[in-house]
Amino acid sequence: MESVLSDRLRQTGWGAAPRAVRQVPVAMKVVVAGGFAVGKTTFVGAISEIDPLRTEAQITVESLGIDNAGPINGKTGTTVAMDFGRITIGPDMVLYLFGTPGQDRFWFMWDELARGSIGGVVLVDTRRLEDCFPAVDYFEALDVPFVVACNLFDGVATHHPREVREALRVPSNTPVVLCDARRKSHVQETLVLLVEGALRKATAASGRSAR
C-alpha cells in the first residue's frame, strides 16, 4: 500500500507511537439460515440496532476450487450477498446476526459465516418445509447448537411445532418454536433459546475437560 502513506509519515513513526488504549468488544456471531424468502432479513432487522447491512463477496471460479480463473474475467465470477445486523450487548460485547445468502449452493459462504459462530437459527416457512432441509443438515453436520423457528406468515401457525419437529427429525435437544420474524420479542426469545443451548453445551464440555 505504498500509495496510501508517505514515507515521511511512516518515518515519523506511527508504529512507535503509543497505541490508543481502547477497549475492543468481544464479537459474538449467530447465523440466520433457511430457504429463499423465509424471513431471514426480517428476523435480523427486527432486533438489530442498525438496518440490516448488505455485504457482497465476489466469488471466482478459483475459489470454487477450479484452477486458472482470475477475477478480471467477470465471466468466471459471481457475486454472493448476505446481510447482517448488530446488537451492542455492552461496551464489552457485540453480537452480529448474519443471514445466509438465499442460494444454498454457496456452501463455502456458509462456512465463512458459521466459523466461530455460536450456532444457528433455521427459519422455516411451514408451507414449504423442505426448503429448510439443507440448513438443518448443515448445522447438524457441523454439530453446533441451533433452533428451528417456524415463521408465522399471516400470523397463523399452519403446522404445530411438534409436527415440524417430527417432519424434520431434529435432535430432541434442538428447540422448535413458533416465531413471527417481524416481532422483536419473538426474535429475542428465539435467540435466548439458542444461547441457552450453546451455554448448556459449553458447560457440559468444560465439565468434561475439567475432569
Partner: peptide, 18 residues
C-alpha cells in the same frame, strides 16, 4: 469465544435485557 461459558452467560443476560 463461541464456546466460552462466561461469555455465553454474559450474552444471554444481554439478550434477555434487550
Amino acid at each position: 469465544a463461541a464456546t466460552d461459558v462466561a461469555l455465553l452467560e454474559r450474552l444471554l443476560d444481554g439478550i434477555r435485557a434487550l
